[in-house]
C-alpha cells in the first residue's frame, strides 16, 4: 500500500518534470500543464482565434475570448490596440498584476502569438503561449466548455508601448538599403517570397508589388513547428535559423503579409532563442505598396500585367 503510494508520487513528480522539460521555453506551457492548472486563480486563459464561432462552441474551460481584429487592433486606423483599451480588456478578463496569462488559438496559434506580441509591447508580465494551441488541445480530447466565464475584474496596469518590439517601415528600409546591420526574416511561403504570387491562395491581393524586401531570408513559419503543432526544440530551432544566417549576433526583424504569422516566428526567436527581434506588423501589405522602396522580385510578376 505504502509502496504503491510512493510509486504514484514518484510518477507524478516525474510526469511534472517531463511535462515541463518537454517545452522548448518557459514562455510555453503544455496542454497537460494547463489542464492541471486551470483551477489556479492566478492563471488566466485567453483564446485568440481567427475563425468566428470557434470559441463559443467549445473552449478551454474558464477561457476568455479576444477577437483580434477588434479587440487587439484599432478598428479604424491601422494600428495595434491602444493602451487604455487593452488595459480595460485585460481587467475585464480578470487579469491581475501577478497573473499568468496563457494565450492560445486556432490556426497554429498565429493570432494568439500576435496577442502575445501586443501584450509584450505593453509590458504585461508572465505571458505564455499554449504549445500546440487549440489543435493539440482538441486532438488530445481534453475538456471543452461552452460556458462563458465572468471573471472578477483584475487590476493589471500596462506600461507605455515599447517601441523596441515593433519594426516600422523606416527600420525595414534601413536594413534593405544596408544602412543597418538588422537581418530580415520573411516567413511567407517560397512562392510569395519569390514573387510568383502576391498573396497566398484564396487570399485577396492587398499589395500591388510582388517579391520580398532585399536581403531578407525565407524561413516559412511552418518550419518552426513539429507535426503536432508544438514548437520544435530550441536546439533544432537554433540550427534552422542559423542555417539561414540568423544566429542572434545581430538584431532581427520578422515580417509576413499582415504581421500575424510573423508573430509566431517572432515568438520562437525571442521567447525560445532569446534573440533581439522586432515584428514588422506593416509587413508586405505596407512595404509592397510603398513608393520608391527597393524590392527583390525573382519571378518578375507584374501586378495586373500580362
Amino acid at each position: 500500500m505504502k509502496f504503491s503510494r510512493v510509486l504514484a508520487a514518484a510518477a507524478a513528480v516525474a510526469t511534472a518534470i517531463v511535462g515541463w522539460g518537454a517545452q522548448a521555453s518557459d514562455a510555453l506551457v503544455s496542454t497537460e500543464w494547463l489542464e492541471k492548472n486551470l483551477k489556479d486563480p492566478k492563471v488566466r486563459v485567453i483564446e485568440v482565434s481567427v475563425n468566428p464561432g470557434v470559441f463559443e462552441r467549445g473552449h478551454v474551460p474558464g477561457a476568455t475570448n479576444f477577437v483580434w481584429h477588434t479587440d487587439l487592433a484599432d478598428p479604424v486606423r491601422r494600428d495595434i490596440v491602444s493602451k487604455d483599451n487593452l488595459e480595460k480588456l485585460l481587467r475585464n478578463a480578470g487579469v491581475n498584476q501577478d497573473s499568468t496569462v496563457v494565450l492560445y488559438g486556432d490556426t497554429n496559434n498565429w493570432f494568439a502569438a500576435w496577442g502575445a506580441w501586443v501584450l509584450d509591447i505593453y509590458g504585461v508580465k508572465n505571458v505564455k503561449l499554449l504549445d500546440g494551441g487549440r489543435k493539440k488541445w482538441e486532438a488530445e480530447k481534453r475538456e471543452l466548455s461552452t460556458q462563458v466565464a465572468t471573471a472578477k475584474p483584475g487590476n493589471v496596469t500596462l506600461a507605455d508601448a515599447n517601441p523596441k518590439l515593433r519594426a516600422r517601415l523606416t527600420d525595414v528600409l534601413a536594413s534593405a538599403e544596408k544602412k543597418s546591420n538588422t537581418k530580415l526574416v520573411d516567413i511567407r511561403s517560397p512562392d510569395e517570397f519569390n514573387g510568383k504570387v502576391i498573396a497566398p491562395a484564396g487570399i485577396q491581393e492587398l499589395a500591388i508589388r510582388a517579391g520580398h524586401v532585399p536581403g531578407a531570408v525565407n524561413v516559412p513559419w511552418g518550419e518552426a513547428v513539429a507535426a503536432d503543432g508544438t514548437f520544435k526544440p530550441a536546439a533544432e530551432l537554433k540550427a534552422l535559423y542559423a542555417a539561414k544566417g540568423i544566429d542572434g549576433s545581430t538584431p532581427v526583424i520578422t515580417y509576413c503579409r499582415i504581421g500575424e504569422r510573423s508573430s509566431h516566428t517572432w515568438f520562437a526567436l525571442v521567447k525560445i532563442l532569446g534573440y533581439d527581434v522586432k515584428n514588422y506588423d506593416g509587413s508586405w501589405t505596407e512595404y509592397g505598396n510603398s513608393v520608391g522602396v527597393p524590392i527583390t522580385n525573382v519571378a518578375g510578376t507584374v501586378w495586373t500585367g500580362k
Partner: peptide, 13 residues
C-alpha cells in the same frame, strides 16, 4: 450562455 450581456457592438456568433 455565450454572451451573458448583449453586446452593443458585437453580435452572437
Amino acid at each position: 450562455g455565450w454572451m451573458p450581456v448583449p453586446s452593443p457592438t458585437r453580435l452572437p456568433a
